[in-house]
């Protein structure tokens, strides 16, 4: 397994810390003019999602994590596992609840997701940044009310709740930003 020196640290680098795969979120080089240099990093534990600060002495090296992001197509869920397929090799993989996390709210048939694999097993699932979904249930729309800026809850097929403008009707298709779960626009 390869090792990375602190001079190779950068955002996105996958490293092993305390037996868990981590991704470097940010790295700041700290160096007193007359002293020891350090790499002060923020790292995300890819299993738990927790972000912590870690400081390394300059020149230390850490083991790389066998983690890779692959683009995979969502197929279906059997209630316990979510199934994905590599569209090039047709290889299929199942991700459990821990790996999928909150992403299930945005998983719809054939959506292309980023699946993070650790030792070949799904570790995390990132849905597309934007998805289009039809509204399953919401209060009746207030026709013509496009100016007041009020919102109301709308529920999707997947169980996701999105705040939408008052004029949006049940059954309409809307575009959602999955990174913050916010309504973006109507889809005509």
């Amino acid at each position: 397994m390869a090792n990375y020196g602190t001079n190779e640290f950068k955002g996105g680098l996958k490293i092993m810390l305390d037996g868990d795969p981590h991704s470097i979120v940010s790295n700041e080089f700290v160096k007193p003019g007359k002293g020891q240099a350090f790499a002060r990093t923020r790292v995300r534990n890819l299993k738990t999602g927790r972000v912590v600060e870690r400081t390394f002495k300059s020149g230390e090296s850490v083991e790389s994590a066998d983690v890779m992001d692959t683009s995979m197509q969502y197929l279906y869920s059997d209630g316990e596992q979510w199934h994905f397929m590599n569209p090039e090799t047709f290889e299929q993989l199942a991700a459990d609840k821990t790996a999928v996390g909150e992403a299930y709210l945005w998983l719809m048939d054939e959506a292309m997701c980023e699946v993070t694999l650790y030792n070949g097993q799904p570790l995390a699932v990132t849905p597309p940044n934007f998805v289009e979904m039809a509204i399953k249930e919401t209060d009746p729309g207030l026709r013509g009310d496009t100016a007041t800026g009020g919102t109301k809850p709308a529920y999707m097929e997947t169980g996701a709740m999105v705040k939408v403008p008052l004029f949006i009707e049940e059954g309409e298709k809307i575009k959602i930003d999955t990174r913050n779960g916010e309504y973006v626009s109507r889809v005509k």
Binding site: G35, Q36, F38, E53, T55, F56, K57
Partner: peptide, 21 residues
């Protein structure tokens, strides 16, 4: 609750640098 690099413990000068920072 702060991170301390293991490689540092036997290097007092470096310990001081990080502590002061």
């Amino acid at each position: 609750g702060r991170s301390f690099p293991q490689a540092l413990e036997h290097d007092l000068a470096a310990c001081l640098d990080l502590f002061v920072d």
